[in-house]
């Protein structure tokens, strides 16, 4: 199943996340089958695959929204399998949602304060407010700080998701299609943010359909198809893997796009 083990190039380096044999079913649907990988600190891992491949489900298992039927999620050396999302958040895991979930009736600042207050560092309101300002300036929402989150446009809401996650000062950040629906300029802006976050020492897993972007920014890539890992490796290795091309052949346009990029 697994083409290349991630353990070879990363021996001796601290692992922030170990996903071991994770399996998840919904009724008769096998959403994830025996997903296994290790993630070294400080890397960006790209998670790609056709729609319905189980990428978001994998995020949901990692951050505790779903408990897996089998397998383990070990975060920073602790077994967090079946723990609640807030327990993982307190341990230093943050995520964004594919479909943005702003707290509409709260201001942009308050949204981000929630991240800072209840995340890993457990700040008081006053400190959290300062962090919120910093983070909002960092993602380019400094001008909208006192607006209601519900009044933002979709691009801004994506940035808000990012800001909320960053305000928690996580060790590991899960990004679920933060680039989807953005125009090229906005994508470049967001990628720049992602790189800076990584350079700041935060490990990232990103689910992405914008191939050029994810190939450009990721250190390693895992490809999921029908809930199974069909390939992993560096972006170059993965893009030349026949199985990956085959998986995308169900969608010839996408396969072509992948080859060209």
């Amino acid at each position: 199943m697994v083409t290349k083990s991630l353990s070879t190039p990363t021996e001796g380096i601290a692992m922030i996340l170990n996903v071991q044999g994770v399996t998840k079913r919904f009724g008769g649907l096998q959403a994830l089958t025996n997903v296994t990988f290790d993630l070294p600190e400080g890397q960006i891992l790209g998670l790609i695959g056709p729609n319905g491949a189980g990428k978001t489900t994998l995020f949901n298992v990692i951050n505790g929204v779903y408990a897996p039927e089998a397998g383990q999620v070990i975060f920073r050396g602790r077994n967090m399998t079946g723990k609640k999302p807030y327990q993982l958040a307190k341990q230093g895991l943050a995520r964004t949602h594919q479909v943005v979930r702003p707290l509409n009736e709260l201001t942009v600042r308050e949204n981000v304060i929630v991240g800072a207050c209840f995340g890993r560092e457990n700040h008081r309101l006053k400190q959290a407010s300062k962090i919120a300002e910093e983070v909002l300036n960092f993602v380019g929402l400094g001008g909208k700080i006192d607006q209601l989150a519900g009044s933002l446009n979709i691009t801004e809401k994506k940035r808000l998701e990012m800001a909320r996650a960053l305000a928690a000062r996580p060790y590991l950040l899960l990004l679920d299609e933060v680039l989807a629906g953005l125009n090229p300029t906005e994508i470049e802006y967001m990628l720049n943010i992602i790189r800076q976050v990584r350079d700041g020492g935060i490990t990232i897993i990103m689910i992405e359909h914008v191939m050029r972007a994810v190939m450009g920014v990721s250190d390693r890539i895992i490809v999921l198809d029908y809930g199974k890992q069909i390939a992993e490796g560096t972006p170059q290795e993965v893009s030349q893997d026949p199985r990956v091309i085959e998986a995308y052949l169900g969608d010839p346009k996408l396969a072509k796009k992948l080859m060209e990029e």
């Binding site: 807030y86 958040a89 509409n104 304060i113 929630v114 909320r164």
Partner: peptide, 25 residues
């Protein structure tokens, strides 16, 4: 106006999202 209250408001707005941010709902 407290941190506790902000947690409550976040539960009101979206309980699942709040839990993902670490609010022990």
């Amino acid at each position: 106006t407290s941190k506790f209250g902000l947690g409550l408001l976040s539960i009101r707005e979206d309980e699942d999202a709040a839990e993902v941010m670490g609010v022990i709902a």
